[in-house]
């Protein structure tokens, strides 16, 4: 299910699109909203932003082009996204006592175009500050969203998180980035 799907993660060969200002504004608001849901730990609303076949991906290597031949910090389908939220909110999650708090700043939002399947490819940059107990962690990188246009508005088909230190040595990464 994780490795036998044929999922297009390519984000580099997009077809340019002429986006109206209104669309660009909506997309930007969507990306900001997604970040806010994570920061406010509004997990169910965050899960509802995804398409059923959407994938959440954090590559482990700079320039990694595939989750199928290399380890990934995350390669999560719907089952595993929900599983992570269940774990995060389980009352016997010792590593979330106390919980991790976070704040994201997102900028440089740009619409790259559409991919081979017509999904809108959106890039942004983020700075994330996480705090738990007396420890503060800074995480930075870029997001690549592939967005599906649905009757209910935009939905996430792919969220790729490219960390500046993806190949470094990490402490536990618990919540979704």
């Amino acid at each position: 299910m994780l490795f036998d799907i044929d999922f297009d993660v390519a984000t580099d060969s997009v077809k340019p699109v002429n986006t109206p200002m209104e669309t660009w504004h909506q997309v930007q608001q969507f990306i900001f909203h997604e970040a806010r849901l994570l920061d406010e730990r509004r997990w169910q609303e965050w899960l509802d932003l995804w398409t059923d076949d959407g994938m959440y991906w954090i590559p482990q290597e700079h320039g990694q082009t595939s989750p199928y031949d290399h380890i990934s910090l995350c390669w999560e389908n719907k089952i595993l996204r929900e599983m992570r939220i269940r774990t995060l909110t389980n009352e016997r999650n010792w590593a979330q006592q106390p919980v991790t708090h976070s704040s994201r700043v997102i900028g440089n939002v740009m619409i790259d175009g559409t991919d081979s399947e017509g999904y809108l490819v959106v890039r942004s940059a983020f700075h994330l500050t996480e705090s738990r107990k007396d420890e503060t962690r800074y995480v930075a990188g870029s997001y690549i969203h592939k967005l599906a246009s649905t009757d209910g508005g935009w939905r996430i088909r792919l969220k790729q998180v490219n960390l500046v230190n993806c190949d470094g040595t990490h402490k536990s990464i618990q919540a979704h980035i």
Binding site: I58, D69, C74, I173
Partner: peptide, 27 residues
């Protein structure tokens, strides 16, 4: 597919983002 199963196991159990390991590291 055998290699991919190994990748899957590493991603889910041994990655810094594992759902299992943070509790180990905490204790």
């Amino acid at each position: 597919a055998v290699f991919q199963r190994g990748l899957m196991y590493a991603n889910l159990i041994n990655s810094p983002s594992s759902n299992v390991m943070p509790d180990d590291i905490e204790v």
